[in-house]
Design a protein around this nucleic acid. Structure first.
Lengths: 327, 327
DNA sequence: TTGTATGCGTTATCAT
DNA sequence: ATGATAACGCATACAA
């Protein structure tokens, strides 16, 4: 069933049917005739033909590293709910942590496959920038602050700073850090910088062996904590870049009968589901992940409607969740 | 950039370029010329024009109740990874737990918007069935066993039966149950039936006040457990339909200083991240969620390739994870 | 092995 | 207010 068939059945030209569908004006008589045929046949226009003609896909490409992550799936939830209100749908670009696939998706999407791109980013390389430069449709980056692009991200430096300051205010003297590679600017670099700056501001000495860099995993947190404990006699607190890392660190401490929080206090960033359930309950910093998805969606929609031509930079706040892993 | 421009730049006809792209034969000389131009320009064919012409979208519509759920996001991970191998992408139909939206998506997808549909289902109504009947492209249902449709689902009855049998084998005499509405056949009905059958097989008396039905949430587990404890003097174990419910139940018990597992043992289904971290660690049943996504993907792909015409019914197994909430 | 011509279903332009 | 026609970018039947 197509527009011509409908036109034929209604006894009008397909132009008239097209006008009817697109709210152009059609006489009352024809309006009724066409509506009747459409109801009878259950006709729905081909979105592919429409796209070919109008260049509008009504799709937002969402590129992300891993959908089965608590934080990222919340972002997607925010995106999909918000763009749905405007008649858009999500075309998923799940890269499964493969950076080459990110480039691939950018390449596919660049050719007007989607009306806009929301890129949930971890590491931005030169290749990414080159690829993105070629894309003429709006791009919004979530989770990282990238020059010359509209971004929604979290105050990683501020959150890390606050976390460490909170430890200091609670009389912790020897604070370790377990983080991830600085290639991830937001999680790796900014959070470590927050740690370093807080130490500096409070005249704490920086000691190299108090810093452990690993992966985004509990295993990595476990190993990092082990190294920290073995290398630092007087350690009394650890700031972990993510909840997963903190969970791993806590595992190590509990296994070795080191009391949390009396002997070693723990703080991290994420406010994940596990953080509320682990024992002791993890003191952590809440990020507004779903909000970041919603804001990214709003931003891209306003760009698509040409209401927002310039580059926008939205830094979202955070909130300390005081629980039981610090005393 | 389009196929004609590429043809022009390469000094051949657009037919030749089309053949090049579709693995038809082209002379070595032209092959090199075309490849060079494509590399230089970064040309990607318009999938919309291709779809208009061939009726193939290379898209799988994935309808799901909530993406920010640990189980569902794992299913999607499986789907997206597997269909990606065959050049398909995921068009997301996130309904945010709104059943009307499921119908809407089915309606949108029915008009050849996608090549196939994977429906991660919770409750199947008559409306769903009516809508699905109209759809001519392949549909695979995940998580529920629906007559006349190909399904990938878990052995909910068997898993529940095994869970309760495990409690019985561990000398539990008075076993409560906290579940969800039977409208969800898999989680609500089948799991309760497994509970009931195990009691019956081992000659345990069924007592009405040992059954609590609520929602998919920790709060509901908390309330259900409270009711169970208050109404049942000799209760010594609870089987929870989901990990979230179990976490809530454990919260209530811990708050009221009822020892887990000594006074009341807990078992559930899900093997979620929290189940490994909560104290005591939750004994639970592992489901192969990612596998179900992969299997659903494989099934729909084989249907699209016309290798699999008939209705297929795949029931996935489960695995008991013995941890600390039963003694 | 290559090219010409046509049509997929729609919307936009222009004329009536 | 309506209709004829062209064009979007591609794949395919057919001819060469």
């Amino acid at each position: 069933m197509n527009i011509s068939k409908i036109a034929e059945l209604a006894g009008v030209s397909r132009t008239t049917v097209s006008r009817f569908l697109n709210d152009g004006y059609v006489s009352e008589a024809n309006r009724l005739k066409i509506q009747k045929i459409i109801d009878e046949t259950g006709y729905v226009p081909s979105s592919y033909a429409q796209t070919l003609r109008t260049k509008k896909t009504n799709l937002i490409g969402v590129i992300l590293p891993k959908i089965s992550s608590e934080t990222i799936s919340r972002v997607v939830d925010g995106i999909s709910g918000e763009i749905g209100k405007y008649g858009y749908n999500v075309l998923l670009g799940n890269t499964d942590l493969d950076i080459e696939k990110e480039i691939e998706y950018l390449n596919i999407f660049k050719n007007n496959e989607v009306d806009g791109i929301i890129f949930v980013a971890t590491v931005i390389t030169k290749k990414h920038l080159e690829m993105m430069k070629k894309i003429k449709r709006p791009i919004v980056i979530v989770g990282q602050n990238v020059e010359n692009y509209s971004c929604i991200y979290h105050d990683d430096f501020g959150a890390a700073y606050s976390a460490v300051r909170y430890l200091i205010e609670n009389d912790k003297k020897n604070i370790g850090y377990i983080g991830v590679s600085e290639k991830d600017v937001a999680v790796g670099k900014e959070r470590m910088n927050g740690y370093l700056k807080a130490l500096k501001d409070y005249n704490y000495e920086l000691e190299k062996e108090r810093i452990q860099i690993g992966e985004f995993s509990t295993e990595s947190g476990y190993e990092g904590c082990k190294a920290l404990v073995q290398d630092n006699k007087y350690l009394d607190a650890i700031f972990c870049a993510t909840d997963s890392i903190a969970i791993g660190a806590m595992e190590y401490l509990k296994k070795n009968n080191i009391n949390i929080p009396k002997e070693i206090a723990i703080i991290s960033i994420g406010d994940s589901r596990v953080s509320k359930v682990v024992s002791p309950k993890l003191t952590t910093i809440h990020y507004h992940y779903k909000t970041s998805g919603i804001e990214a969606a709003k931003l891209i929609i306003s760009k698509l409607q040409n209401k927002d031509k310039e580059i926008k930079n939205i830094k979202l706040g955070y909130k300390l969740k005081e629980r039981e892993s610090i005393q």
